[in-house]
Design a protein around this nucleic acid. Sequence first.
RNA 1: GGCGGGGUGGCGGAAUUGGUAGACGCAGUGGACUCAAAAUCCACCGCUGGUAACAGUGUGCGGGUUCGAGUCCCGCCCCCGCUACCA
Length: 861
Amino acid sequence: MQERYNPVEIEPVIQAQWASAGAFRAVEDATREKFYCLCMFPYPSGRLHMGHVRNYTIGDVIARYQRMLGKNVLQPMGWDAFGLPAENAAIENNVPPARWTRSNIDYMRGQLQRLGFSYDWSRELATCDPDYYRWEQWFFTRLYERNLVYRKTAVVNWDPIDQTVLANEQVIDGRGWRSGALVERREIPQWFVRITAYADELLADLDKLEGWPDAVKTMQRNWIGRSEGLLVRFELADGSGNLEVYTTRPDTLFGVTYMAVAPEHPVARRAAETHPQIAEFLASCAQHSTSEAVIEKLEKRGMPLDVSVRHPLTGELVPVWVANFVLMSYGTGAVMSVPGHDERDHEFARQYGLPITQVVRPADGSAVDVQQVAYVEKAVTCNSGEFSDLPFKAAFDAVAARLEREGRAERQVQFRLRDWLVSRQRYWGCPIPVLYDANGELVPESADHLPVTLPENIEWSGVSSPLLKHPDFMHATLPDGTQGRRETDTFDTFFESSWYFARFCSPDSTTSMVDARALYWMPVDIYIGGIEHAVLHLLYARFFHKLMRDAGLANSDEPFTRLLTQGMVCKETYFREAHNGKKTWFNPEAVDVVTDDKGRVTAAKAKSDGLPVEIGAVEKMSKSKNNGIDPQTLIDRYGADTVRLYTMFAAPPEQSLEWSDSAVEGAFRFLRGLWRMTYEHVARGHAARVAAGTLDAEQTTLRRKIHETISKVTDDISRRYKFNTAIASVMELVNALGKAAQTTPADRSVMQEGLETCTLLLAPIVPHCTEAMWKALGHDSALVTAPWPQVDAAALVRDEVELVVQVNGKKRGEIRVAADADDKTAEAAALADPNVARFIEGQTVRKIVVVRGRLVNIVAG
RNA sequence: GGCGGGGUGGCGGAAUUGGUAGACGCAGUGGACUCAAAAUCCACCGCUGGUAACAGUGUGCGGGUUCGAGUCCCGCCCCCGCUACCA
């Protein structure tokens, strides 16, 4: 062991030892308890950022801890390798997406290895490899057979310059993010997966997920958005059929004063054929994007359609309007409007002078004025003929029963969740394995023609998908031998990330999507990643797992038993604001802060020119705020262990973490101190094991601290996932060890036990330096295979305990009593304390509360 | 608007079942060592008063329950995240 702690030198050596021993190779073994630990795999953007480091450190600590418990641990790593940034890089740097992606993967793999994560690299996969995506193509064709995928036209954001569909996030202020062109709403054919067929199960099974945070389960519940209502048919007055609406408030049916349909609704379209102003209105609605952020700010606008329907209960004629706030994609695309009891309908009615009537009143008889503001409570009906004076539920049931009897309505459960749109008009993705024959009829690719390989040597010209100009790809022979055209859409990248966790179990299988090994490893025991995936990725993955289960590829209902969502990594921001309001952001590394004599930050200056910069908020590290800290710089300076230690110490995993460079320095100082303490101990020569019954009082106290620390750290890591307090308690132990005398052999034996304990407890967090220390402490076998330390219950026993003495709830003294002292003894000792006596002097002691092992509270007055 | 999570020293955070508020770390202050600096070590470190012992006060604000409240209950303020014309 070297005297000096030199992580940059020792860490690669230890990593090489792990690699040559195959220490993290996961092999199926039915006789051992398995533990599948998984972190959300990264997009290979180029370099690891601090969020990755935090995510993967948390996962690695858990995996290494489980390994020390003796479990058979699988911790794999791979690459979510398809996606848009590769296409952008291709356009900007004229490098093919495949090459850009693979070189990023190579660099980032090196970074992960440098951080010492205990991955089974033999299972590495990248979703852009045909060996991977061929199986999702195969699965897609199976889903097609089972009628779980379909093609349908859908309204999308269309960029007329880039000739592509845009995701909602790519529409900024109604314009394409790259072209700047006004985005249009277009209806083009898209591929959907029928996730709504599983809506009930996806909702119900959330209750089984005891290991998931409530916040995530609630978000998914809201996203699935189950509601119970009534599908009602209003007869069109011209006799041309019915207008169907969905309502959750049949109790307000008598308050309907108009109907509203979406601009895309057939009734609106038909009216537009004969009314030019309506056609114009529909065209203007088509101009804005479908982005919710845009819709929100939109003024409610509409137009009468010169169409009426007959009210199913009163028989009165009700006018039909087209309105921009009605969504074609929810329910039937038409609503019955009850302005007295719905805020949107109220706003619209006031704007266009439509009548507002009250049909619900508060149960307590108080008055409301629905002309002024909509009364939306589910209360008691009124002005509703025979359905008046009924509470909500009774009114709902009575109206529903009547309309069902007359064949005008059915009860219906609606979901907010819509079918999953999986097609993208993009190049860098998995080709959708479908062909079209000479007549344009759809033919799924046959299984023996898979994979449909994405051509990787492509020329970029313009922005649209190069597949459209790739004759070899486009032209294909159909299974019946005729010539046809290949689908040029690719899958949404969420498609690949919805099943990679299963593929990790048998990544080399060439004959099936997953094999029997997946039945051994699945489900994932703990899944760690950002909360930003609470809905989309985690919902799609749950869905996909159920699809695989129903195809006989999984035998569990849910893929992730436990979910740990880690918080963001944040850093303060610095900027200068120009006269025109434009802000220039300064990286924290390029700024010096000025503090007063109490250490408070008072100002900041740019290193470049020494002039002041403004101090902004502490925000998530991002390119736009230029407040990112590159992990690689810190790894190069302090080593992987320090970066890992600080990341785990600065905050509990679920909270956001505020990056502090000086606190990183503190983490390094701690490791250096522990290293030095170990070096000095070892330099004094061999230390015997602790012999029971030979320790003096001080040694006994120190040894008790050792075992209390084992107990605390075990609980923190295994049950609470609170690594920060686990590290804090090891720091306390190290501080205590550092103060202990080293004169007798017994002193040295307690020190030996203490240092071994620190080494074992810190092994999952800082695996490199502890591995070296473990060897120095006299162990031949590797620390990665060492078992987790056991608490010696005998060492925890105390003869005496310290009690706090309170008078009327305020602390007035401390006493020591025998650990087994009864309440009377504790009371007597408390009353004997001089400071306590001072506070009860001249007063009557009314009551004494004794909490064993904690405190004595004397109530006096 | 809806849902979820928060508000504790100069800062990150701790207090796990209602029982010593501020563990651990960072920053800061004073001192030792040094020609000097760095590093290291020692001491102090919520606020007010006091040389100190100690006392008063203190966990966003106002009430309440309790022998005892950061923790439980009622009312309010503020911040963050997600979501949002979902009929």
